[in-house]
């Protein structure tokens, strides 16, 4: 196991702060830092927990952060521009009760997008992250038809000045990558989760669903949570708390 020096120091720093809270957390944080030559493995399953009640009305910090991190450009055409994450507002038809929260690719354990993709461009990494391999995506958009969460976007025009974090181009389909470049680097968080912390809302927690000691697992264990369209049995990696 070798760790980038910077990452190692960072992990150490987290460990020091975390030890005070609960012993054991430092180990988990270290585990998040995979070395560059080590393949992602099924030991982890990355996910998010989104607390709807903590999500602030009118705040779009997570959306903005995602756009910046992944270089999602605004081409000036709302119906065709890509959106990896969006704030959805729901209103109960009977009671009028309103909620607003972010929705992105739910990183399904049984992803319909992967099942239908003819070339295998849509795939699920061993650690549960669902990605599009744009090298072999032929742009048939069948995955977009199949996704129950409307999580995917097709790139309708030529794109320039892509971010180094997320290669993307005309004629292929894309969606939230769970900030895979950050996970591989061992950042232990996503851009949207970071941004939410920066805004002091802390509505998004990133972590390893398979590690019982991770923050996300402990939170999930402690309080009720739900999946969007749980009836479809896709076992999503993105969970919600307080979703009415």
């Amino acid at each position: 196991m070798s760790i980038g020096r910077r990452d190692f120091l960072k992990a150490g720093a987290i460990a020091t702060t975390a030890t005070a809270l609960a012993p054991g957390i430092n180990l988990i944080e270290l585990a998040a830092a995979r070395s560059p030559e080590q393949a992602a493995s099924a030991v982890n399953r990355w996910g998010l927990l989104i607390d709807v009640n903590k999500c602030a009305k009118g705040c779009t910090a997570c959306v903005d952060a995602c756009r910046k991190e992944n270089g999602i450009s605004d081409e000036g055409s709302p119906t065709t521009d890509a959106q990896w994450i969006r704030k959805v507002t729901t209103k109960d038809k009977a009671t009028g009760y309103e909620q607003a929260f972010p929705v992105m690719c739910q990183h399904c354990e049984h992803p319909p997008c992967v099942d239908v993709c003819p070339t295998g461009a849509s795939f699920k990494r061993k650690d549960g992250i669902v990605l599009v391999d744009k090298h072999i995506c032929i742009g048939c958009r069948y995955c977009m038809m199949a996704c129950p969460y409307k999580a995917r976007s097709f790139i309708h025009e030529e794109i320039t000045d892509q971010s180094h974090n997320a290669p993307r181009g005309k004629g292929t389909v894309e969606s939230c990558t769970l900030c895979v470049h950050k996970i591989d680097r061992g950042d232990g968080s996503t851009a949207c989760a970071d941004a939410c912390v920066d805004e002091n809302h802390k509505a998004i927690i990133f972590g390893d669903l398979k590690d019982p000691r991770s923050e996300i697992s402990r939170q999930l264990k402690a309080q009720p949570s739900s999946q969007i369209r749980a009836d479809l049995n896709l076992n999503t990696g993105v969970r919600y708390r307080g979703l009415s």
Binding site: I28, L30, R34
Partner: peptide, 10 residues
């Protein structure tokens, strides 16, 4: 610490 953690083996 590493060897105790879940995902890493030396």
């Amino acid at each position: 610490a590493l060897s105790q953690s879940v995902s890493v083996t030396i």
